[in-house]
Design a protein around this nucleic acid. Structure first.
Length: 771
DNA sequence: GAGTTTGAAACT
DNA sequence: CAGTTTCAAACTC
């Protein structure tokens, strides 16, 4: 249908006239088409397997195809929106179909976009998004409806040519990288001047958006579209493919991008609701954002498109991957590194590996005190690392940045909770760095890990220097508050230290404390008693499914093992364990008036924490991008209240390990993998190896991080392995406890290892204070 | 820093 | 299992 009309249009005198107007156009269009074709059709399809993606691909291909189609040079621009029968374009077409009278080639776009954006609620989003691409160009958006209409009309008359040309030119400019932005602006201005130009701007924008602007583009491209494109495409491709290798990097990128996408979403969605001015502003802002950074552009594209459902799917795939790999990737990576590299660094033991994964990273906080951050994995922290809260102090942006900058894989983790701004900055930096390293060779991680590990090693070694260092760290750790028990003698779960499975240390202000190596017997006995009552008493409170590690799935849901019982806090304060753990409330919760930002009991999820297990991927993607902003807000609140919670930092607990617990002997079977975690883990973690217990309780908000760790929980909960499990029934909470969370079920492979570990791990190891 | 609030843990 | 008490963290002032 549309095609036919297009042909008619093409054949029309006006069209010819337009064609004649600029000889250059045709050529350019051709070249462009050549340039685009390969990308549009080749790379994307192969890369994306998702059915949803296809539409996106198509849409993209269409767009590019337009340009690419030499036969229809002039229409290419228009065709983008009109011709394609698929994806986003389809929507537009649909729209056009709905309003056949408008179908004029020139008009169609304008009207479709306009109408859709403002009038059709359903299509509005998609179209508006489309506009954001097409029109992303400020012009369009900026141009009031009437103006657009005018333009459309004028275009019908003949400006289409000019449009095409300008579009081409613009596209060219886009290819050139930073220039693109300027050009686009210029185009916009021009568009404003002349109605016919709107098309140009649209085309231009679309082109620019389509094109992956990468820094490389600027350099590589000048003059050669293809080359310029290639880099961009490569970049994207690398992003996609890179997930396997550089999940972290990509993740970072994604995160960085995320905000942009979010912005766009915000800006784009509103159009129908928001005044044109606002819309324009949003669009412009978005555009600026996009243009601002080459990487951002690339990302932006992905982020933008997500708006389009069609497109979004594609991007979702990316995001998912990012998300998925985010945790899993890191985890896997390290595993691979450890296994493959077998580096001397990692050679020692799982612990080492873990440590490497966790990379005890010295962090300098704003106050100048260095802190060790243990990013996550493998450490099963019995009590959500409550202690960790305090450990990481001043989780301000600066610190977050620092953390990220650290050569550890932890950075990504941190990024999660870090404010967007900080994320953007830091992530950008880190991502770039990491990308370089990772992409060059997968070894980078290892190196990084080795660095971090080196630190750890140093840390753990016994040379005087190192001892000193240790002391320092320990002292630093002291910054971390401990418990403040007055009556429980630190032998009840009231005591965070005890609950976390760690001995109280100096920083604790507890009174009559028995949770010390000197009272090991008592501690163990008490612990056993408690466990007998509730086998999961020392299990991590937040259980996450992170099957992603192996399968690459997205990490998904996390839940508090028992659920909260909040009455007054609305699950918006740390009183709420769910909130504290950075997870949403679930069915298990008996809270009242739940407003948990991470996910309400009723299922609505504001933030990353998902309420629905099944939604993992989608949710994840959304979380990563859209929710991020929300999270930012919410989290920031929490941050303000308690920076720790919001920030992904790892608990410094590791330090404590130094001071503490030797219990490990029984408790810790050698770990074959990072995953090893025992129900009783916390305490007594790694000492066996003679190293500080690097593994620490999870930071509350490190959702992703926790994912991995918590991965293990399910096992524990499932309890085959855990001796305790048998006893479990006694627990009042057992109902709510998640063994049931089979959903979380992890892949058999890991499970196996985990199970073994768990089995071998006594609930409460006989402790031999090594201190 | 003291006092209050809150909800988990413990107890009955 | 429900209700109550105890407890210490979280929060407020």
């Amino acid at each position: 249908m549309q095609v036919t009309s297009l042909h008619k249009f093409k054949e029309s005198p006006v069209f010819n006239y337009i064609n004649n107007l600029s000889p250059i156009k045709t050529v350019k269009s051709t070249s462009i088409s050549q340039t685009f074709n390969p990308y549009s059709f080749a790379s994307l399809p192969s890369i994306f397997t998702s059915p949803h993606v296809s539409s996106l691909k198509e849409s993209r291909s269409l767009r590019r195809h337009h340009f690419s189609d030499p036969s229809k040079p002039e229409f290419s621009s228009d065709n983008e929106t009109k011709v394609g029968g698929t994806g986003v374009v389809t929507d537009v077409l649909r729209n056009s179909d709905e309003q056949p009278e408008n179908f004029d080639p020139g008009r169609c776009i304008g009207e479709c976009s306009v109408e859709t954006t403002y009038e059709c609620p359903e299509l509005a989003i998609e179209v508006s998004r489309t506009l954001s691409y097409d029109c992303g160009s400020p012009d369009c958006s900026a141009t009031p409806c009437h103006r657009i209409e005018t333009n459309c009309v004028s275009e019908l008359d003949g400006p289409s040519n000019s449009v095409v040309q300008s579009g081409q030119e613009v596209s060219e400019a886009r290819f050139l990288g930073s220039r693109v932005h300027l050009e686009g602006i210029t185009n916009i201005e021009q568009t404003k001047e002349g109605g016919g130009r709107d098309w140009e701007s649209l085309i231009t924008d679309a082109t620019g958006l389509l094109i992956f602007d990468s820094p490389n583009d600027i350099e590589a491209s000048k003059g050669h579209f293809q080359e310029s494109l290639d880099p961009g495409t490569r970049l994207c491709a690398s992003l996609i493919s890179g997930f396997t290798h550089d999940e972290i990097n990509h993740l970072q990128i994604t995160e960085v991008v995320g905000p942009v996408g979010l912005e766009q979403n915000e800006s784009e969605n509103p159009p129908s609701q928001v005044g044109e001015e606002g819309h324009l502003k949003d669009i412009e802002a978005t555009r600026d954002t996009l243009a601002s950074t080459s990487i951002n552009t690339c990302v932006a594209e992905s982020s933008e498109q997500p708006d389009n459902e069609h497109v979004s799917n594609l991007h979702r795939g990316i995001r998912r991957r990012c998300l998925v790999f985010e945790m899993a990737g890191v985890y896997r990576k390290h595993l691979d590194d450890s296994s493959s590299s077998g580096s001397s660094i990692l050679s020692q033991s799982d612990v080492n590996i873990e440590s490497s994964d966790k990379q005890l990273v010295p962090i300098r906080t704003s106050n100048g005190s260095s802190r060790c951050v243990l990013p996550e994995i493998g450490l099963h922290i019995n009590a959500l690392a409550r202690t960790s809260k305090n450990c990481i102090i001043n989780h301000d942006l600066a610190s977050g940045r620092q953390l990220i900058n650290e050569p550890s894989s932890a950075a990504p983790l941190h990024s999660l909770t870090t404010g967007q701004e900080s994320l953007n900055k830091s992530l950008v930096v880190t991502s770039a760095e990491r990308n370089m390293g990772h992409e060059e060779n997968g070894v980078q991680n290892i190196e990084d890990a080795s660095q971090a590990f080196g630190y750890i090693e140093e840390f753990s070694q016994s040379s005087p220097k190192k001892k000193r260092r240790r002391l320092e760290i320990a002292r630093e750790s002291e910054d971390c508050k401990r418990c403040n028990c007055k009556k429980s003698k630190c032998l009840k779960l009231y005591c965070e230290c005890f609950a976390a499975g760690v001995y109280c240390v100096e920083p604790c202000t507890c009174q009559d404390c028995f949770n010390k190596p000197a009272h090991e017997d008592i501690v163990l006995a008490t612990r056993k008693q408690i466990e007998s009552r509730n086998p999961l008493a020392f299990a991590p409170k937040v259980i996450r499914s992170s099957d992603s590690d192996e399968s690459g799935k997205t990490p998904a849901s996390a839940r508090h093992k028992r659920g909260c019982n909040c009455k007054k806090s609305g699950c918006l304060k740390k009183y709420c364990e769910c909130f504290q753990g950075g997870v949403g409330c679930s069915i298990n919760c008996r809270c009242e008036g739940c407003e948990n930002a991470f996910g309400r009991k009723d299922g609505s999820t504001l933030i990353g924490a998902d309420t629905e297990l099944e939604e993992e991927e989608t949710e994840t993607s959304e979380k990563s991008v859209v929710n991020k902003s929300l999270r930012k807000n919410v989290i920031q609140n929490s941050i303000e209240q308690n920076p720790d919670s919001a920030l992904p930092e790892t608990p410094l607990r590791s330090v404590r390990a130094l001071v503490q617990l030797p219990f490990s002997s029984k408790s810790k079977p050698p770990r074959s993998s990072l995953l090893s975690i025992g129900s009783s883990s916390g305490y007594y973690g790694i000492q066996k190896f003679g190293k500080p217990n690097l593994l620490q309780p999870q930071p509350k908000f490190e959702n992703r991080i926790q994912d991995i760790q918590e991965d293990e929980m399910p096992e524990i909960l499932q309890g085959n392995s855990s001796p305790i499990s048998g006893v479990k029934s006694s627990s009042p909470n057992s109902k709510r406890v998640s063994p049931p969370h089979t959903d979380f079920g992890s892949s058999p492979g890991q499970r196996t290892s985990r199970k073994l570990i768990l089995q071998s791990i006594p609930s409460f190891p006989s402790l031999t204070p090594k201190q």
